[in-house]
Amino acid sequence: MEKAIYIRVKRHKTTYFIQCDPTETTLDIKQKLQELIDQPCSNQRLTLVTSSEILDDSKTLAEQKVENDTIVALTLRKDDNEFEEVYIARVEDYTSFS
């Protein structure tokens, strides 16, 4: 059974396409990501790129207006326990003319 939607989770030069349902919570998404990035849910933060709004673990995707093909930024907890800044690499910065 295919999931209804997918979201694009981005960090640095990587994009994760994650299949999900609008009724799933942010925590459900973090559990899926946990398998892929080897980082526990508590060390992940998901931020809506368009509004810079941090997604709430207990709320569903639908409640937070996360729809099909939405881009969400992933940030991870650093050694000092703070979260890193949102950083998504832009392709223009890596275009080579060789």
Binding site: K13, T14, T15, Y16, F17, I18, Q19, K32, E35, L36, A89, V91, Y94, T95, S96
Partner: peptide, 21 residues
């Protein structure tokens, strides 16, 4: 969602896209 069920596609500029197989 397991890592083995995904594949990483890498572009000419070295950007990575992790998608379901």
């Amino acid at each position: 969602m397991k890592k083995e069920d995904t594949v990483k596609l890498i572009s000419s500029e070295g950007f990575e896209f992790v998608v379901d197989k």
